[in-house]
């Protein structure tokens, strides 16, 4: 296990370096820059600004300074667009918000999706099964940019139960709607995966053995069938978790929650290289981390897998 983690980290470092170089290069080659606008700045002013941020240096020198900054001081550099704020400040402000509603959405998606999928599989072809399949199809076809305004319409404008936006330090009233909007489609995917894999496991030979032993259905489901049927779900959970905790531009834009999803998309529009790069590295590291967690979970579920 420890060896596995060390091996994975050893592979993660070159992966991150390649990610860094590739995204840096892509942004440098795209025409324009953070300080180009419709009305060009006077040449002298532009040169001064570029000198301040080090943009007059050769590209390899910029990249080198950037990497050295990260490694020695954990400094992702200043934002080009938000004056007097560093990338570290932006992450420190936005990431906790995203992490909060992301983790809650993740838990909701697993618990509701898992329960729905398992109960649909156990009662295959019953009204419960048809209901679950119907709900999950509906939830999957409804995009969150449609769902979010509907939620605001119903709960804020009509019923007046919940605030229509903002974060307010993470009060629970402000969390509910972002979580529903973000988790629904993941919940639906998990339910569908869970249902089909549970159905497959329930048809397998070892379940027949368990029945022949005289085990009650409850024990068969929880002790014999659940763990193997989690395999396909777990492989989906890695990317799903990263998708949820790395933020959603739509959630941040519609509910004004101020998570990193909003900063990320704006950074791309504004050519805010530093913010863009910082967030890319953050997301890249999280993706690598959660894929590793998924592999460890795999080994826990299936004793044949040795890490």
């Amino acid at each position: 296990m420890l060896n596995f983690i060390i091996r994975r980290i050893a592979v993660a470092i070159p992966t991150l370096i390649i990610l860094l170089i590739a995204s840096f290069w892509l942004m440098q080659t795209a025409p324009g820059g953070p300080f180009t606008s419709e009305r060009p700045l006077p040449a002298q002013v532009l040169a001064n600004i570029e000198a301040k941020y080090g943009l007059d240096q050769p590209v390899y020198k910029q990249l080198w300074d950037y990497v050295v900054g990260i490694l020695t001081q954990f400094d992702f550099g200043p934002s080009y667009k938000y004056k007097d704020r560093s990338v570290n400040d932006i992450i420190a402000q936005g990431f906790p918000v995203t992490l909060t509603y992301g983790v809650i959405s993740f838990l909701v998606a697993i618990i509701v999706g898992g329960a729905l999928g398992i109960s649909a599989a156990i009662r295959q072809n019953s009204w419960l099964d048809y209901f679950a399949v119907g709900v999950t199809i509906g939830a999957q076809v409804l995009p969150n940019f449609v769902m979010a305004p509907i939620l605001i319409l119903v709960f804020t404008l009509w019923l007046g139960w919940l605030p229509g936006g903002g974060w307010n330090g993470g009060q629970w009233q402000h969390i509910i709607m972002p979580v529903i909007a973000l988790s629904t489609s993941y919940m639906a995917s998990i339910a569908r995966l869970m249902r089909s894999s549970m159905l497959e496991v329930l048809r397998s030979n070892f379940i027949r053995t368990a029945r022949a032993k005289g085990l009650p259905e409850r024990t068969i489901i929880w002790r014999h069938a659940l763990k193997p049927s989690l395999l396909p779900v777990v492989s989906y959970l890695g990317p799903a978790f990263v998708g949820m905790v790395t933020g959603s531009f739509i959630i941040d834009a519609i509910f004004g929650t101020g998570g990193i999803g909003y900063f990320y998309v704006n950074a791309a529009f504004n050519r805010d290289y530093a913010v863009m790069m910082g967030l890319t590295i953050l997301l890249g590291s999280m993706t690598i981390l959660f894929n590793m967690v998924v592999d460890i979970l795999y080994a826990w579920i299936d004793p044949k897998i040795r890490l």
């Binding site: 030979n205 070892f206 053995t209 368990a210 022949a212 009650p216 193997p228 579920i301």
Partner: peptide, 28 residues
């Protein structure tokens, strides 16, 4: 009923199957 059958299966009569490779629960 299944509950009554569960009392008999494994106690009064047992069954073994063709494919031993898949007949046991893999994670137990």
């Amino acid at each position: 009923s299944q509950n009554e059958l569960n009392q008999i299966r494994g106690r009064d009569m047992s069954m073994i199957f063709q494919d031993p490779l898949t007949a046991l629960t893999p994670h137990m």
